[in-house]
Write a protein that binds this DNA or RNA. Sequence first.
RNA 1: GCUGAUGUGGCUCAGGGGUAGAGCACAUCCUUGGUAAGGAUGAGGUCGUGGGUUCAAUUCCCACCAUCAGCUCCA
Length: 645
Amino acid sequence: MKIKLADGSVKEVKDGMNALEIAKELSQKLGKSAVAAKINGTTTELTATVPDGATLEILTFDDEEGKKAVWHTASHVLAQAVRRLFPEAKLAIGPATDSGFYYDFDTEKPFTNEDLAKIEKEMKKIIAENLPLTRFTLPREQAIAKMEAAGEPYKVELIRDLPQDAVLSFYEQGDFTDLCAGPHAVSTGKVKVPKLLRTAGAYWRGDEKNKMLRRIYGIAFPSQKELDEHLQQIKEAEERDHNKLGRELHYFTTSPAVGQGLPLLMPKGAKTMQLLQRFVEDEEESRGYVLTKTPFMAKSDLYKISGHWDHYKDGMFVLGDEEKDDEVLALRPMTCPFQYTVYNAEHHSYKDLPIRYGETSTLFRNEASGEMHGLIRVRQFTLAEGHIICTPQQLEDEFMGVLDLIQYIMGVLGIENDVTYRFSKWDPSDKDKYVGDAQEWERVQDAMRTILDHTGLTYYEADGEAAFYGPKLDIQFKNVFGKEDTLFTVQIDFALAERFGMTYVDSDGQKKTPYIIHRSSIGCYERTLAMLIEKYAGALPMWMMSEEVRVMNITEGAMEYCRAFADRLKKAGIRVTVDDRPEKIGYKIREARGERIPYMLVAGDKEVADGTFAVRRRGQGEIGNMAQDALLELITSQDREKVIF
RNA sequence: GCUGAUGUGGCUCAGGGGUAGAGCACAUCCUUGGUAAGGAUGAGGUCGUGGGUUCAAUUCCCACCAUCAGCUCCA
């Protein structure tokens, strides 16, 4: 029979050969060890038979899917090791992820670090045994009986919840069998070098009403060297953790007496945030936004109209008691109903629209205690919040305008390549969470999808991530731990305008309900600051640094000289300080470097004599001596908003 | 909220049933120094908070608070 290889070439092989046998014939061509196969575009194990005329791709650990097959196998090895050492442990699920694998177990006692070391040792034993993985299927009742006999209630539940006609496949490696859809590496030996990273709790089937299981996270690589490199990368990424670095650099602090999720910005952090705010507010103004300034709190009545009271009361800071008090106030968790009230204070013609309201808005959300994280999830935060009230005809243009604003801002921050776009849709099976009916949702989601397709963006769709009043385009970023959060959001709201009785008079004299676009143009400032600290490892673009230039004298004789030039810089609008302490220059440089100051200017007797400064640029080291005028020109002339170094 | 870990001077950490230590930072003095740490001296902690056990608790136990990771949630 003939098969087609991934490179397009056609190969003649014996009938009924499996991918592994073909891979062996091709072994010198591959270079790397084969771990899985892709037959006609479907990833499968190497033991799968290749049909006549099929396209075959041999996957190695360097292929995303090959890697997943190995990691998935590693999770089975983990489960097998746990079963050997802790026979009472019940198995739940154990998939590969983008960054490794995990397996969830139900055990009486938590796994200790010593346990992990033991399990890892046992895994290495199983890998050395190089047990082949064999796949087989069972009819439903037999599959259930098998898992019941094995004492695996979670597996039984999984099978029972699968559709009646589902293929129930099992993978067996030595004395261990697991219900699993595959695909897998051909044998446990392919896992090579495993490493268990940590334990964590995880709800069975991701539902907090269910029992919490014990999850073990791990990773595996073809060699110790690659594993070490990976672990080093993780360590380096965690060095950038804003929660650590942001505190070390004195951007923010927290205090138990102030409370959880309530970071205090210190002078450096506050200055950077002010610079970001000025930039965003000016940019919005130039794009036709008008300002509002609305209260931090309102009566519960307002949130009842918007629906936030019903949907999110538990997440709000409520002042007073509904049972006892005539008036109950609540701190605002968002600005929407306030800006709608502003809109309703005037009558509007279609000629007024679109109206673009913007507000640098302080918001309060009573996040659950386990959710708070540095500057990323907090109880009080600042959002560049805006609502665009427009006619249906204007919706697409306005949406595009918002996207253009967001992309411009991302460009200036230098993060446009660090984000992904998520089209967040409703979940038709969760009616409680969403207002409106299915027809409306489908209509608005279709409209949004059409707009998104017109933008040419690469985006992915996510069910159940919409706001209760409409679908969203969320711009997502990952922090140093790989956890994803929303940075920017654009939402189409088809529900709240009507609830608030917002109208405009159209050209035909009829009152109509406008569309509303909710959007944030820079995300929450605290979260954005966190992401910037992590992205730049504290070396933020110069224009948003609280201190752009530090002038340092070597000798007392150069002190006045340094101060005088710093004054010149200050007059030119540069944020500059002078370090004229009687310290050694190496010491001053060390401190300034630690603070990621973009320009360090050094003067001793020599510089005083020839009117120059020894210039050191962040990330570049010494760049030589420069005369004062040329230096002033260099520092002030560049486009400080765009230069990142 | 749930699971697990952690909490010792401003920071990073050591220690351990008999009321505490290092380095950095800070203060004073000496040092006039050439691009990542000059030297000396000193000050600073009721060992997260509150209970309990004990002759004695920072150390052991319990509760709470906070921090970290993961889960769940995220208008």
